[in-house]
């Protein structure tokens, strides 16, 4: 080896010098915060600054078990995430299929068109939905103009508005893995199946779907995992009763200043997401 003096030992030291700041970075900004979350969940809220006293109390966890409000918030979040991810997949599949079918020269512009909304600001896009759906908004304006309704329909701050905003925000992330998988799909396979007499429906269920399934699962999880902790969209577009875990955690922290309970809620959300996350990481290795 042309490593000069020292050879292997020298290389180990050099690596150590490079690795040390990276370890420090990861331990400080990723490992320590999660560990502190664990410590905080056993503390007691107080009126001081910061508003807690350390200890080993199970009060926060007992509250999670005793008060169904929190279990329902977790459930509502999982339901919202699953609905969002399911709807995204339903819309994303034909989109990805269409995008994979166009002439290769068109793929890049279409991909840009898909990802550009992501670069235009998440809150500004939610602002557009507010402008469309509120009482004096464009949709109600049009409905009244066409004589369909006299009174404005309550469209904003509903389940529907929340879902529209969720799907709008997360749709590109469901399309991407499907698109990547479908352009890799070998057309010869489909032609062979068609030559052997498979009808389009059969073709879809026995060739395309099995090959696209890992990508569909990846797309579902890519939406489901962040959507489960979503706070901003339910807060800005959803009804007040849509108390998902992200919102409840936020309120416990910012309004009730109950840091231990907020920490316990964060841990509960993490515990629920461990399996989807592990599944996603395993898919990531394969896709």
């Amino acid at each position: 080896m042309g490593d000069g003096i020292g050879g292997a030992a020298f290389r180990v030291i050099r690596r150590g010098i490079l690795l040390a700041p990276l370890w420090a970075w990861l331990l400080m900004l990723v490992a320590a915060p999660v560990l502190i979350l664990g410590v905080m969940a056993f503390a007691t809220p107080s009126d001081g600054v910061p508003p807690f006293t350390l200890g080993l109390r199970f009060a926060a966890f007992a509250m999670l078990v005793e008060d169904f409000y929190y279990a329902e918030a977790l459930l509502a979040a999982l339901r919202l995430a699953a609905t969002t991810a399911g709807l995204c997949l339903l819309i994303a599949y034909p989109m990805a299929l269409g995008m994979a079918g166009v002439r290769p020269a068109w793929r890049l512009p279409l991909l840009a068109l898909l990802m550009l909304p992501f670069w235009t600001g998440f809150l500004l896009r939610l602002g557009a939905w507010i402008g469309l759906l509120r009482d004096e908004g464009l949709v109600n304006h049009l409905l009244r103009g066409l004589g369909i309704t006299d009174e404005p329909l309550a469209l904003l701050y509903t389940e529907g508005a929340m879902l529209a905003g969720m799907v709008h925000a997360y749709l590109p992330f469901a399309v991407l893995p499907l698109f990547t998988a479908l352009i890799r799909l070998d057309p010869a396979l489909l032609e062979a199946a068609a030559d052997l007499g498979a009808r389009p429906a059969r073709l879809f269920f026995s060739v395309t779907l099995p090959l696209a399934l890992p990508a569909a699962a990846a797309g579902f999880l890519l939406v489901f995992i962040p959507a489960a902790g979503e706070f901003v969209i339910p807060e800005l577009l959803g009804p007040p009763e849509a108390q998902v875990i992200g919102r409840v955690l936020w309120q416990e922290f910012f309004q009730n200043r109950d840091w231990p309970l907020a920490a316990a809620l964060a841990l509960a959300l993490l515990a629920l997401l461990i399996l989807p996350i592990r599944w996603f990481q395993r898919l990531g290795a394969g896709v």
């Binding site: 900004l29 915060p33 999660v34 502190i36 962040p226 706070f231 840091w259 959300l269 993490l270």
Partner: peptide, 15 residues
């Protein structure tokens, strides 16, 4: 990449 935003935000504040 996989931690929910509210969890990252809260845990970093506590740090």
């Amino acid at each position: 990449l996989v931690l929910p935003e509210v969890v990252i935000g809260l845990s970093l504040l506590l740090l």
